[in-house]
Nucleic acid binder design. Sequence first.
DNA 1: GCAGCATCGTATGCGTACAAACGATATCGG
DNA 2: CCGATATCGTTTGTACGCATACGATGCTGC
Lengths: 152, 152
Amino acid sequence: MNVKPEIKAEPSTMPDGYVLEDQVGHLIRRAHQRHTALFMAMIGDEQITTTQYAALVKLYQMGELSQNHLGRLTAMDPATIQGVIRRLTLRKLISHRPDKNDKRRRCLSLTSAGRDLVGRLLSNGPKVSKATLDPLSPAEQQQFVALLKRLT
Amino acid sequence: MNVKPEIKAEPSTMPDGYVLEDQVGHLIRRAHQRHTALFMAMIGDEQITTTQYAALVKLYQMGELSQNHLGRLTAMDPATIQGVIRRLTLRKLISHRPDKNDKRRRCLSLTSAGRDLVGRLLSNGPKVSKATLDPLSPAEQQQFVALLKRLT
DNA sequence: GCAGCATCGTATGCGTACAAACGATATCGG
DNA sequence: CCGATATCGTTTGTACGCATACGATGCTGC
């Protein structure tokens, strides 16, 4: 081991018991980091991220969607979904055609490669969820997800 | 209202009941987005982000820390904390001096402006946590935070 | 119709978040 | 003492995430 004493200095007096590590925002952020790491390790494709996976699965489920609509379904604003779609299109997992009735819209859909990929990864999704919730008992897992759903 | 019928097409058949919106990772991501928005609206400074706040509060509590040590205490890797510290230093909220015993380290501490700012914002921290948890009853809030702490 | 407003997708800028590689420094084992 | 190893902070590259502004297109109400 290569331990080193950390710097010590006089802390400021804190108003009664404000502990950063107990704040719900900090805990959510850390839970998000942990989930992302589990996802990248387990989803079965080195390149696919959580948001890319969400977009692919939604298109797989819904068949054809406009870009912003897909963004709303996956909780991404227009600027964010634009980049996600651009990268998936570059990898030829998504294709697009103009909308007949609305010249502003891009009709997005999966390519056959995209459908194949989702087909391969889809069974890993539940495994990631399972691993994420693993520290909790089954009853606690159900409770946690139920509470989490109400925080949206 | 300016509603527009969304594109419709044939969805692929999904393996039994995989609902993206029910996956814990997606819910955590959305909870994180919601918390960040509440934080930025309520913390009392337009520029300070959640991670910058965490770094400032830790320095306020601990007095003086090396950069990577601060990163570990706030769950940021060296590349991330580097950018956070650079921006806080640019705003003259943090200063640094070389470590006497270890030439690799930067000893970070708050400037008086940094201490003043933390002093002003600190009372808003609990308000953000309260707002984040507001959809839950007090008992549920306690439960949720307890479960969340075990997912780390 | 047509003016005003809404929505579509794009672009820029800033701020996390992390992998990977790096040079400098520190420590440990032999 | 010295080579192997670990840690420190930096840099580069990629990917969200959102604010803001933009031009193009669609819709609504007068």
